[in-house]
Amino acid sequence: MNSSCLENESAVEHAPGHAIIAEMLAQAGIAINGCQPFDIRVVDPRFYRRVLQQGSLGLGESYMDGWWECERLDIFFQRALRAGLEHRLPRGWRDILYVLAARLVNLQSLRRARRVGERHYDLGNDLFEAMLDPHMQYSCGYWKDASTLEEAQEAKLKLICDKLRLAPGMHLLDIGCGWGGLAAYAARHYGVSVTGVTISRQQLQLAQQRCAGLDVDIRLQDYRHLHLQADRIASVGMFEHVGPRNYSAYFEIAARNLKPDGLFLLHTCGSKQTDARVDPWTEKYIFPNGCLPSVHHIAQASEPYWLMEDWHNFGADYDLTLMAWLQRFVQAWPQLAANYSERFYRMFSYYLCACAGAFRARDLQLWQVLFSRHGVEGGLRVAR
């Protein structure tokens, strides 16, 4: 350890709660005011009490307020989650109330569903255009044979289309179509017509522009209002906003909108545990009313309507995707800064790093699940 590290160590202010937080972090090999890139540097001693009182929410908000710094937040979260520190943080009253509400109230009802569109996806197309690839894919790329974000996202789009066995003349329904990247790719490369639905007005406008001249219909519509007979259905990065109280209805609606011999691909982040717990910081600042499904959630809700043909986990690829987004976000910040605050910068970079660390720690998963209505005769040789 060099002399500057020793000086930092000796200069730590022993504020109330310091010893408890220091002991907790030490279990993950993280030091306070240490010299490793994943160590934290406490700027405001109120940080300790805030984290002890508010848990994850206090940790995130105190970072947004500049009370602590960390050179490599992604590694900080990877180590913290690997050590299980999230189970030692106190559950604040906001967290407890959310769990109770999720059990008693439909937090993803029709009335509430537009909140995530307004709060997150409508942040600004300038932000997402700067951060994402040319296909505007705000979901995990497929890095099996890719070395850049562009290659990984195009590989993901091809993987989805190949798994669905798209062919010219088919009708694809894209539930949660985002900025129309999959719709445009499928129409151009596979000769299909596409109906895409989103609840974000910002996404709608840009998707319609990007799909102009193609056999693509983009609508501002909730999935519960769909009445189609598609040959294929894809839903990418949308199921995270459906909520446990709506899972069964979601799968029933998808089945109702698909021809009997059709295929349905669900691409979703997932939780390794089955519960209604949601990170309170993420719920407040990033994805209001969001909830990650578990394997049990999906299996139980889909069973009455679907036969599962394939289940593919490539969650480790989300780490690479998120870090690529972070790099682009940081590089674009000088141009974005005029439209967003410094606190937003800290919030958004914290979000990207926390998610990258969680996927790297394998605390979060990414699944593609392929369903048929009655089972494909002879089975499927599913693309990888």
Results as ranks from 00 to 15, higher is better:
3 S>P: 01
16 P>K: 06
18 H>K: 06
18 H>M: 09
19 A>M: 05
20 I>W: 12
21 I>A: 04
27 Q>K: 15
29 G>R: 06
30 I>M: 05
31 A>D: 12
33 N>L: 04
36 Q>P: 00
37 P>C: 09
44 D>K: 10
49 R>I: 08
51 V>E: 04
52 L>G: 09
54 Q>S: 11
54 Q>D: 14
59 L>H: 01
62 S>Y: 10
62 S>M: 05
66 G>V: 07
71 E>K: 14
74 D>A: 13
77 F>S: 13
84 G>F: 10
85 L>W: 04
86 E>M: 13
87 H>E: 14
88 R>H: 12
93 W>R: 11
94 R>K: 14
95 D>Y: 02
96 I>L: 14
102 A>Y: 04
107 L>V: 11
111 R>P: 01
113 A>R: 07
114 R>S: 12
115 R>D: 13
124 G>Q: 12
129 E>L: 12
134 P>A: 12
134 P>T: 11
134 P>Y: 13
138 Y>Q: 06
140 C>A: 06
146 A>H: 01
147 S>D: 09
151 E>Q: 15
152 A>R: 03
153 Q>V: 06
158 K>T: 15
165 R>H: 12
165 R>T: 06
166 L>I: 06
169 G>F: 05
169 G>M: 03
176 G>P: 12
177 C>K: 06
179 W>A: 01
181 G>Q: 07
183 A>M: 06
185 Y>T: 05
188 R>Q: 14
189 H>N: 15
192 V>I: 03
193 S>M: 00
194 V>T: 06
194 V>P: 04
196 G>Y: 10
198 T>G: 04
199 I>V: 14
201 R>G: 03
204 L>N: 03
206 L>M: 08
206 L>W: 09
208 Q>C: 14
210 R>F: 11
211 C>T: 15
213 G>S: 13
213 G>F: 08
218 I>M: 12
225 H>E: 15
229 Q>F: 05
229 Q>A: 15
229 Q>T: 15
230 A>W: 04
232 R>E: 07
233 I>A: 11
234 A>R: 05
236 V>E: 05
238 M>E: 10
239 F>I: 12
247 Y>R: 03
248 S>A: 15
250 Y>C: 10
252 E>T: 01
256 R>K: 12
258 L>I: 07
260 P>S: 08
262 G>S: 00
264 F>M: 12
269 C>A: 15
277 R>L: 13
279 D>Y: 00
280 P>L: 10
284 K>R: 15
285 Y>F: 15
287 F>I: 07
288 P>Y: 09
288 P>M: 09
289 N>W: 07
289 N>M: 01
291 C>Q: 13
292 L>T: 06
292 L>E: 03
293 P>L: 05
294 S>M: 03
298 I>S: 03
299 A>Q: 14
299 A>M: 08
299 A>V: 11
303 E>L: 13
303 E>C: 09
309 E>K: 08
311 W>K: 04
314 F>L: 11
314 F>D: 08
315 G>T: 03
318 Y>Q: 06
323 M>V: 01
327 Q>W: 03
332 A>T: 00
333 W>Y: 00
334 P>K: 02
337 A>E: 01
341 S>K: 08
344 F>M: 01
345 Y>S: 00
345 Y>T: 00
346 R>N: 10
348 F>M: 00
351 Y>L: 05
361 A>P: 04
373 R>T: 12
375 G>D: 07
377 E>P: 02
378 G>L: 08
378 G>N: 04
